[in-house]
Nucleic acid binder design. Structure first.
Lengths: 126, 126
DNA sequence: CTGTATCCGCCGCGATACTG
DNA sequence: CAGTATCGCGGCGGATACAG
């Protein structure tokens, strides 16, 4: 196999890249994971906001919109006052959780190896 | 389980988040994948540059540096003229390929579902 | 061939304030 | 409670030019 042949993640329109784009917005996977941890795979805005340390209200809404557009979650409004909005995992979203959890699991299983390096020992290269 | 309990991807210093950061630089997984497709899990700069449509020389080098710092790959220099540099998968990098390939595989398996949405049908919300 | 250094536009994302 | 609108900064990442 010669070089120059995009056999790997070559083409810009391939499925793998499409998946990576889902991770572009850094909160996507965490939101999905949080929803999954809830009973019924659903949660309201406020709950999500509280369960995701560091996320801003803006990013939450924004990411939720994108995820809805990607078909990962669905939005349900209770026409009460004050309004209650609930987000639920869709079939696609639920399926996407498999590879995500695998990724998370890998992270936990290799936490030590990752630690050694994020701390940046002391002397390196040059 | 009540809300407010960061049971999911809560803490900012947890392993899952650490893993996500590896995806922060969008080329990391693709570089790993490309290296894996080579015999011996190694490739030279030029080859990588040609195998990754769209990447710039700058980003390649930069990403390779970060990956080296993260222990995913190692750098080997042949002191010839012109110099020949080769990057190789490390044990950690190889292990990280498992979840990555799973992710890619998922993308291919759900390519159709993703297509329907990236095209954005026509009428939606509002 | 490999790598570094600038210049610079774009946009992810937080902070803050306001409407229903 | 849920959502939108603005402002602003940091930095990703491309283009280009130069060096070993």
């Amino acid at each position: 196999m010669k070089a120059g042949t995009p056999d790997a993640a070559g083409r810009e329109d391939c499925a793998p890249r499409r998946v990576l784009e889902l991770f572009a917005t850094k909160w996507t996977s965490m939101i999905l994971h949080t929803l999954a941890s809830r009973h019924g795979g659903a949660a309201r805005t406020g709950a999500l906001l509280r369960s995701l340390p560091g996320i801003s209200k803006k990013m939450l809404t924004q990411t939720l919109r994108e995820m809805e557009g990607s078909g990962l979650i669905s939005r349900h409004v209770e026409a009460t006052t004050p309004p209650a909005v609930e987000y639920r995992l869709t079939a696609l979203g639920t399926r996407f959780l498999e590879p995500i959890d695998l990724l998370y699991g890998w992270g936990r299983a290799n936490a030590d190896a990752l630690d050694l390096l994020t701390v940046r020992p002391s002397s390196r290269r040059r």
